[in-house]
Structure formats: C-alpha cells, structure tokens
Computed example of a mutant assay.
Amino acid sequence: MEKISLITTGGTIASKETTNGMLASGALSGQELASTCELPNDIELKVVDLFQISSMSMSFGRMEQLNLAIQKELEDPEVTGIVVTHGTDTLEETAYFLDITNKDRRPIVVTGSQRSPKEVGTDVYSNLRNSILCAASDLLKDVGVVVVFNERIYSAKYVKKVHASNLQGFESFGYGYLGIIDNDVVSIYQKPLHREYYETHNHIPRVDIIKCHTGADGIFIESAVKIGAKGIVLEGVGRGQVTPEMVQSIQDAIDQDITIVMTTSAEEGKVYPAYDYEGSAFDLKQRGVILGADYDSKKARIKLAVVLASENEVDETFFKY
C-alpha cells in the first residue's frame, strides 16, 4: 500500500463558479477534489487542506508554511510521496522554492489546472490523478521537486508557464520534460544530475526583478534599494546586457552591498561576458554583478532570496547548476 499526502493550497484546480460567472479560486476542499480521482486500490490518500487562495496570494511566508507542512508529512516513514495542488500563475516559483529547501529523497509533485473542475474538458482530475501516481513511483526518488501537467513530468528548475489558458500550459525550453504518464504508467527518460539544498536561518529578504528594455534607466533599481531590497535580479537581453543609463544605479546599489544577479530574457542560452561596452555582461561582472547563467528571472529571484536567508555569501557558483 502506497501512502500519499495531498496538500492543497487553492488555485483554479479547486475553484468554483460564482454568481457573476467568474471563478473563485480555492473554493473546493482537498477532499472534494480527491473524491473524484478514482485511485487504484493500493494507494492510500491523506488530505491536508493548507490554504484556499489564488496563486497570486502566494508569498515567501506562505511558501515556508507549505514547506513546514510537507516536512511534517514526511516525518511519517510510511508516506511514499507528497502532492501539492497550486494555482498555475505562480506554480513554477513555489515548485522551485520547495526544490531547493527540501532534501528528502521521496517524490514531491506540484500540479494545478488550466480549467476549473466544472468546465468542459477540464484537466483537474487527470493532472491530480497523474500527480498522485508519480508521487507513488520509485522512479521519482532523488529527482527533486517535479511539476506534473498534461501527462508530462517537468523539473522544477526549468519549468515555466507558457500559455495563459491552453491545457498544455507548461514547458521547459531547451531541456524538455523528464518523462510522461501514459495509461497510469509513469516513465522517466532523464533526471537532473544535481540537487541543491539550503536551510534558511533568517527571514527571507526582499528581492526584486527589474526588466531591461530600450530606453530603460535606473529609476526602478533606485526604488528597490530605497524600499529595502537586499537583492535585485536584472532581466537583461541577449547575453546579459542592459542600457548604459542603468549602469550608474547598478553601481550605486552594489556599493550599498545589494546583491545583483543578471539573467536574460531569452528563452534559451546563458548570460556570458561576450561584449565589452558599458552595460554589457562583461562590464557589469567587473563591477560586481553576478552572472546568473541560464536561470530565468523568477527562478533566480527565488534562489537569491533563499541563499541570502541561508547566510551563505552569494557568488556565481550558486548559479552554476
């Protein structure tokens, strides 16, 4: 008998239609969701209703609460794995947070849905059922946190929401998915080579994302510093470039011990010091900006905040894998 803990946090997967035809996120309980999955007889499901919120109400504080709930369930040695239901808009951020703050070998699966339970062609029950099957599978031990969506299994580090409404809502550009679930059979074709774990000792600090575009200046960098951000993730372009008008504000922030990480808005490829001009990745690296390799800005923000809270001194080695 496989024992799975289902921890619910709300989102479209647990939504109900309101009187005005809109959706109320998180209105359904976990038990209501689980009752529709028709699980195999050898799987025992325990439901933990943690939050009933939209995913845009997720925060670092709530991610930490979710993490504690997961760790509590994993204290039971008979628990085979964990499934977390979540709204899709910030699902990738929570999944990656859990990935780098959990070291248990057992599977942790995060899922959601693009359509509500009552919509025609809903993906609620297939995503939930497939996630439970994955959490019960030995194939996903030591893989880290995964996202299961539309019969595909994704690594938390590279998965991202790519469509606002289509059932194929998630992808991993350049890396692909880890495996599939087909007719209740879990198959894995690749696994991450590295796992990371960071224990947070302090309050998770504010880290902001600032996007670069033509004509951008340093006003948002200056505002982030003024409001108390301890870290800033720059989403540059190409190999990691920003406008010359942003450079002085970046330098001022570094001089005030603000940790800055450079990422790229490109879907694939790494930040790399290929050019020598004001605002290039090479120029910014000389000033103390950390080059964030192939991390997208959201994952880099999660990692930077967690590493800062772990009392580690942040450098490029943290963005190597």
Rank of each mutant, 00 (worst) to 15 (best):
L6V: 06
G11L: 02
G26T: 02
S29M: 05
L33K: 05
F51C: 04
R62C: 08
L66E: 04
I70Q: 04
Q71R: 13
E78M: 09
G87I: 01
T88P: 07
F97A: 01
L98F: 05
K103R: 14
P107L: 00
P107S: 01
P117Q: 07
N130Q: 11
A135P: 12
A135F: 01
L139H: 11
L140R: 01
K141W: 07
G144D: 04
R152V: 08
I153R: 00
V159R: 01
V162D: 03
A164Q: 10
D182N: 14
S187Y: 07
Y189H: 13
E199Q: 14
H201A: 09
H201Q: 13
R206G: 11
R206I: 12
K211V: 13
F220W: 10
A224R: 06
V225Q: 11
G231T: 00
L234C: 09
V237W: 11
V237K: 14
V237A: 14
R239Y: 15
T243G: 10
E245R: 14
V247S: 06
A253W: 01
T263L: 03
V271N: 11
Y275L: 02
G279T: 02
S280M: 05
S280T: 01
A281L: 03
G288A: 08
G292W: 01
A293Q: 12
K298Q: 15
K303C: 06
N312I: 07
D315F: 04
D315R: 02
D315W: 05
E316D: 10
F318L: 10
